[in-house]
Design a protein around this nucleic acid. Structure first.
Lengths: 251, 251
DNA sequence: CGACAAATTGACATATCTCAAACGACGTGG
DNA sequence: CCACGTCGTTTGAGATATGTCAATTTGTCG
């Protein structure tokens, strides 16, 4: 399976529209899945980090927060929008590692590194707030509590990755797609998903062909599990989707 | 693909034999188990952590360092032997997340958590040294340097996971097996691998059926890339295997 | 209103899984 | 010391989920 090198360089179409408002809808507090996270900097742990965060920065669809190989100095917290994080292999395969929604951190994987191992691109007008790594390390000296929070954040990310691995290693295509949707509703607390990523990106994330994603999505619609309209998806039976995802997923 | 729930509970075969002695053989320069590499707490970063480590603990084949769900208080550094780390999904699928060799840490994923999300079992007589998480957090307060090291350790682990994901998402079966072998020789600095894990564990780790692992291994032998004798594998052409692994693997 | 990118859909190819049988290694108990 | 049962591995043959290729439609944006 040679996932083409993805020419999704998407020339930063300067889409000035501000997103945060749109997404702010989500919120609440429940248990989470792969990622989790309520919207609007809701994350428990994150809330406490706010004072340390830098001023908001806006990215339009297709703009990169950072690219693999670039020197890395900060990690970001999404306030509104959506970010796609992906890695590239020597062979030119692209693997989408995650989609980050409001309230979720981007780039923790680079915490201890000097250069980014992956790239992060905005999938829609997106607002983020940076947290300088240098600043962070200083802060950690003063606050044992902060250190703990960071550790927590990091291990949460690791748990996510392991869940993702489990999925890639053990699930059938339809379990993956079902799990993907179930995960998204939980993270956004909405049954009305407005997917900002392409079928190709979803396919890469799930480790299946984009055509398979499309087919399965339509199959779910035929089974009345969802209502589908392009990139807009309404989950009619989230529970059944979760069951379908079965096995465990994030476990 | 329903990987059976793995009844590898391996009743701690009361293997009274004392391990450390047995293992001491290893440091003999030649081939040994998977271990090898810079045998004896070789890892650069780790070396500096030594003073903080607790006394060595020995585990025999099949014994668990910890299980998913257990309260976690420490992470471990492997001194000799090999540890298999795996997660379980609700559905009962098992996914092997990693094999840890001498010099490598086990359980960093639990750094910020209170309970383990995965299980770790010794695949052969294994010696590890614990690092109390509580102690660690204290130490981090005193030493900014230590904090940085830990961050480094963690992001290294994350990078590994992302490499693994890339593999699971993009590679063909033979690329995976080739990559697996190539990776092991690098980590052990030996061409003489003594695999301590079953074909099933390898299959789970690589996201393919155990039969496929077996077949591919024998195919490589036919192509004179390796010499195979049960769990003993001699890499005849490591470079070609790496090329075969192509794409990226750990990248 | 065009042109290009994304999505859909069909037909077909095939890598890999699954099921099964057989074998070897190993440890246990008689 | 040998028979026996278990476990892991190998190997074959057939089934199939999913990938690949390609044509068409739909959507987007300048």
């Amino acid at each position: 399976m040679q996932i083409i090198v993805a020419t999704n360089d998407a020339n930063p179409s300067e889409d000035p529209m501000q997103t945060s408002a749109t997404l702010s809808v989500l919120n609440a507090s429940r248990r989470m899945r792969l990622p989790s996270a309520p919207v609007e900097l809701p994350e428990d742990a994150i809330a406490e980090l706010r004072p340390a965060l830098g001023p908001p920065r806006n990215f339009s669809r297709g703009q990169y927060l950072f690219r693999a190989g670039e020197r890395c100095a900060a990690l970001y917290f999404v306030e509104g929008g959506c970010v796609k994080v992906s890695t590239l292999s020597r062979g030119g395969d692209e693997q989408v590692a995650s989609f980050c929604l409001p309230g979720e951190p981007v780039g923790i994987e680079a915490l201890g590194e000097s250069v980014h191992g992956s790239s992060a691109v905005a999938l829609e007008p997106t607002r983020v707030r940076p947290l300088s790594i240098a600043a962070l390390q200083n802060l950690c000296q003063r606050s044992p509590d902060l250190t703990r929070r960071i550790f927590r954040l990091v291990s949460k990310r690791i748990a996510e990755l392991e869940g993702h691995m489990l999925m890639l290693g053990c699930k059938t295509a339809s379990e993956r797609v079902a799990g993907f949707l179930a995960d998204l509703t939980q993270r956004t607390r909405t049954r009305e998903l407005q997917l900002s990523m392409s079928r190709e990106a979803i396919g890469s994330y799930l480790g299946i062909a984009l055509e398979t994603v499309s087919r399965l999505l339509h199959q779910f619609e035929d089974e009345n599990l969802i209502r589908l309209n392009g990139r807009q998806v309404s989950l009619l039976e989230p529970e059944r989707l979760s069951e379908l995802a079965a096995g465990g997923w994030t476990n």
